[in-house]
Computed example of a mutant assay.
Amino acid sequence: MLYIVLVLVLAALGLLVAALITANSLWAWISIGLSIVAGLLLVFDWLRRRKKRSAEADASVEETADDPSDETEEASESEEGDEKKPEDAEQTVLMPATGELGDADETEPAASETKPIGDPGEEKSDPADVAIVSELEIEVVVVDEYPRYHVTTCTWLETRDTIPLGIGEARQLGFTPCALCTPDAEIAGQHRDSA
C-alpha cells in the first residue's frame, strides 16, 4: 500500500513540475487530485491496520479469559496465602483438570526427561468411603502429569517421582483415586478398623 502512495506522490510531483513549466493548469489539477488520492489511501491503510490491531487484542483477551490453566494457577496462588517466595525460585503449579503438573514459567521439559508410560484407571469409589476419606488428613501421593492419587505402596508408582498431598487437598485439586491401589477403599477400611 505504501508503494502505491509513493508512486502517486511522485507522479503528482512530476505533474506539478510539468504544470509549472508549461503553464497549463490542467496538469496542476491532476497533480492535486493524485495527492488527494494518495492521502486517502494513507488514511484507509491506517484505519485498516488499527482495526486489525484491535481485533488481535480482543482475540488475545478472549484466549486469556478462556485458558483454564490461568484459573488453575490463580487457584494455586490463592491457596498459598500470603506466603512470600523469592522471584527467582521456580514455582510448580498443579493442573489436575488435564492431569498435568507444570512450571509457572511455561518452560518445556528437557529432552532427557521421560514421562511414565500408561495411566491407571480411576477407582469406582463407594460414596461411604468418599465421605470418610474426605474428612481425613491422611497423606497420599500424586505423579507429575497424571490425574490420579495413590497410596505410597501402589505398584504403579515403582520408581516414579511422587508429590505428597493430603487426601482432602488432592480431591479438592481434582485428582481422582487410582484403580490399582484403590486408595479410597484402603484408607476408609483402615479408618474403620482403627475406629
Rank of each mutant, 00 (worst) to 15 (best):
P116S: 04
D144E: 08
Y146D: 12
T92Y: 13
D88P: 01
D119W: 04
E158W: 08
D88N: 14
G121F: 05
K124E: 15
D129L: 01
A110H: 11
E90L: 11
T155V: 12
P127R: 07
V130M: 13
R148E: 12
A97P: 04
C154L: 05
V142E: 00
Y146H: 14
T159H: 14
K115L: 13
A111W: 04
A75T: 11
D129F: 00
D126N: 09
S69T: 13
S76F: 11
P96D: 07
E77A: 15
E73M: 06
A111L: 11
P86N: 09
K84V: 06
A131I: 08
S76C: 10
T107R: 11
A128S: 13
L101W: 07
A97N: 09
T152N: 07
A97W: 15
T72L: 10
T98A: 11
E145V: 01
E122I: 13
S112I: 15
C154G: 02
P68Q: 06
V142L: 02
P109Y: 05
A89G: 09
E113S: 06
T152G: 05
E80M: 14
E108C: 02
D105N: 02
G102M: 13
T159V: 14
L157K: 05
W156I: 09
P109T: 06
T64Y: 12
H150P: 05
V143A: 02
E123S: 01
D82K: 12
R148Y: 00
C154H: 01
A65C: 05
D82Q: 03
K124C: 10
E77M: 10
P86L: 13
R148G: 02
